[in-house]
Design a protein around this nucleic acid. Structure first.
Lengths: 213, 213
DNA sequence: CCACTACTGCAACAACTGTTGCTTTAAGAT
DNA sequence: ATCTTAAAGCAACAGTTGTTGCAGTAGTGG
């Protein structure tokens, strides 16, 4: 007999269960792309996935649960920041990517942001995803430092990246301005100039491993 | 007899009608503050306002309609940007105000942003409100130019203001980072340095009255 | 091939949301 | 004071959302 308290909790990851999961997640993405995050309902997802309502309710509980799963799946695709040979070029390319993802209609990225206001779970999942992305981007700054484009080691990569990218999100997501084709480059340029002038340096934060206590 | 097609459309702005409106809008603000934008339901607002559901449905149609009214009311309070004597000081103070409004729990500002994803009407109303606020802030840049802190006339006020304030919204609203007491000053400083280095200058946009075609 | 049971499907249900026709109240005009 | 009618209240209704008990299906291990 199988011990119910064993480490293996008698789950069934294979076959139908897995198939239903992909069907449902695909349906979520499709609904999200088609109707925006407004039109994302448990009912709609279930119908499109060819699965019964009850199944979706039981396995994902609510819309937030669905989004968490989708967001985490999005985090698994491997992504590399651009490498153009200059900091300004890298940041501009990065911003263009961001602008692209925010401008396409319907925007999956915007839908995720909007939806993350719905559920704490989804919000946390998205925060994790973004933290990962920014961490991956730090290499851009490190390369710039290695090339001597920035004051050595005195630049806080995260702050620089935020400064470079934040205006895009602000304009397109929060202010809902019309996309400006020059903005990616201008925002990147401004961040580079600020960095060269010594902003983003010597951030006295909790995680300063170099400082002898 | 009163001509029904007269300019006066036989509205009744006074008395009960006005009283109901303030009751309902107060209720919206209270619900928003208490339960966040999630807990904002027509039913809840009506009950709290001591008014019947149908009344709220008929006059405001849906949650978006309620928010439009609240947002427009918020635009009517007169607000002045800080005036500390220096660009850096002004922007820092402005950012501190923004951070304050985003950090207080529960945040009315965040609730409005979250809610503006719900309805196009609310989104448009909020866009208008924000455009007003940024327009009001341009005086801060103009004063700095007048003081000679910035390269004369070559600075696009709007871009500078966006660069200075965007990181706050990005960190606190979208990334949901813990508030950093130094961020308002650092973001302001970075924007000032970038401006001094000539970013935000000579924006070639549609509204360039000075250029002879 | 068979038994076990995790997972899904189904159907009936309660709760909530928004609508509609009608009645009642009270603001504003005579 | 009285009349008119915009606006609010009321009640009954349809549609939607989420839950629950039970029955059926199909992985998984023997």
């Amino acid at each position: 007999m199988t011990d119910p308290t064993a480490i293996t909790p008698d789950r069934r990851p294979g076959g139908r269960t897995a198939r239903v999961r992909t069907q449902v997640l695909d349906a979520v993405r499709a609904e999200l792309a088609e109707n925006g995050h407004e039109g994302l309902t448990m009912e709609g997802v279930a119908t499109r996935a060819g699965v019964h309502r009850t199944t979706v309710y039981r396995r994902w509980r609510d819309v937030g649960g669905l989004l968490v799963d989708v967001i985490e799946a999005a985090g698994e695709i491997d992504w590399r920041p651009p490498d153009t040979g200059s900091l300004r070029g890298d940041l501009t390319a990065l911003n263009q990517e961001i602008q692209q993802s925010l401008v396409v209609q319907p925007s999956f990225a915007v839908a995720l942001m909007a939806a993350s206001f719905h559920s704490d779970q989804a919000a946390r999942a998205q925060t994790r995803l973004w933290a990962d992305r920014y961490a991956q981007c730090e290499i851009v700054v490190e390369r710039a430092i290695a090339r001597g484009e920035l004051p050595a080691r005195l630049t806080d990569a995260r702050s620089l990246l935020i400064a470079a990218t934040a205006p895009l999100y602000h304009q397109l997501v929060l202010l809902r301005a019309d996309p400006d084709p020059q903005l990616p480059e201008r925002a990147a340029e401004a961040a580079v100039l600020a960095a060269a002038a010594g902003a983003f340096s010597a951030r006295r934060s909790a995680c300063d491993p170099g400082a002898p206590s």
